[in-house]
């Protein structure tokens, strides 16, 4: 790790109730992610990858352990402060795109900027640039349901990057796309996050996706293991 840690996870523990039993989903997770680093979390369905990601975003709370982002233990923050941290420093890309159907794609992409208090002129300028970067500069006024899955995911990537967040969390970003579109979308996500020097954490169950990351971790039975050295 060449850079100082941006995100630190220490002894994270979480379990779900199943009937009367408690099933540990995260069993003592430790992780450090440096600035500008790209890591992949591999694991089967139900292994707890998304739960971990939600905890990193501060939208789920672990039963034990701590998560520090930029020196702040996020679970010691109030709900409002956690939201503001997410708003300013985290971008999210989902498997099912999660675009707001009643906003145009430009409005969807501009939403994080507006929440962060940017003025309308700057929002339009930045949205224009990023839409061109993801190859959808000509679809400014289209609504999400007028786009293909791949196009929707590119809009979601643009929305996750637009406010220049320190960390981008991507939950199965290609899971809902065919191989070719997935590959193309992943290239955009990785390309842009490297170009903008962002930290990227990708959750996936595809080794092909994971091998593009700097480091790979697997989540199995609630335990996180390092997979090997980067392949690029």
């Amino acid at each position: 790790m060449q850079n100082k840690p941006l995100l630190v996870v220490e002894d994270l523990y979480h379990s779900y109730q199943e009937g009367g039993d408690s099933r540990p989903i995260l069993n003592g997770i430790n992780l450090q992610v440096a600035e500008h680093e790209c890591i992949a979390l591999l694991g089967r369905s139900g292994s707890g990858k998304s739960t971990l990601l939600n905890m990193l975003a501060g939208i789920d709370t672990p039963q034990d352990g701590r998560i520090t982002i930029m020196g702040q233990n996020i679970h010691e923050l109030s709900e409002l402060d956690r939201t503001l941290l997410r708003r300013r420093h985290i971008g999210f890309v989902y498997q099912f795109f999660n675009l707001i159907p009643t906003l145009t794609i430009a409005e969807n992409v501009g939403l994080p900027l507006e929440l962060n208090g940017y003025n309308e002129r700057d929002i339009r300028k930045l949205v224009g640039l990023l839409l061109s970067d993801v190859g959808l500069g000509d679809r400014w006024n289209a609504y999400p349901d007028q786009l293909s899955g791949g196009e929707q995911q590119r809009i979601a990537i643009a929305r996750a990057l637009i406010h220049n967040p320190s960390i981008i969390l991507a939950d199965e970003p290609t899971g809902n796309l065919d191989a070719e579109t997935g590959e193309h979308t992943l290239r955009i996500l990785l390309g842009l996050s490297r170009q903008l020097k962002r930290t990227l954490i990708i959750v996936t169950h595809s080794f092909e996706v994971a091998e593009k990351a700097d480091r790979i971790f697997t989540l199995n039975d609630g335990v996180l293991n390092r997979e090997g050295e980067p392949h690029w």
Binding site: F92, L115, R159
Partner: peptide, 13 residues
């Protein structure tokens, strides 16, 4: 779902 997305993006309660 929409409100969930808004909250995930950073809209406060």
């Amino acid at each position: 779902r929409q409100f969930g997305i808004m909250r995930l993006i950073g809209a406060t309660r």
